[in-house]
């Protein structure tokens, strides 16, 4: 299952899906036994997923900050 959207577009994959796949990619890379071509492709895939997860978490952090900053000072 690949991520069809670039991180800046609205990603069609949920955060959990991206995270699960990233974990899987790392597992397979570490297991080795891949052709060079496969390793490279897998590594690129890993980077893309990591970027996506990062994107999600940054946005979540922004939304949380926005909610917090929305408070009137008590």
């Amino acid at each position: 299952m690949t991520v069809s959207a670039k991180p800046d577009e609205q990603p069609t994959t949920t955060y959990e899906q991206a995270r699960e796949e990233l974990a899987d990619v790392v597992r397979r890379l570490e297991a080795g036994g891949l052709t060079l071509e496969e390793s490279l492709a897998l590594w690129e895939r890993g980077e893309q997923l990591a970027e996506l997860c990062q994107h999600w978490l940054d946005r979540a952090r922004e939304r949380l900050a926005a909610a917090t900053s929305g408070d009137q000072p008590e």
Binding site: V25, V26, L57, A60
Partner: peptide, 17 residues
Amino acid sequence: LEQQERWLESVRSRPAL
């Protein structure tokens, strides 16, 4: 959120990536 960020960091620091 923090827990997820730490997880992501640990994954990204893995040599494989």
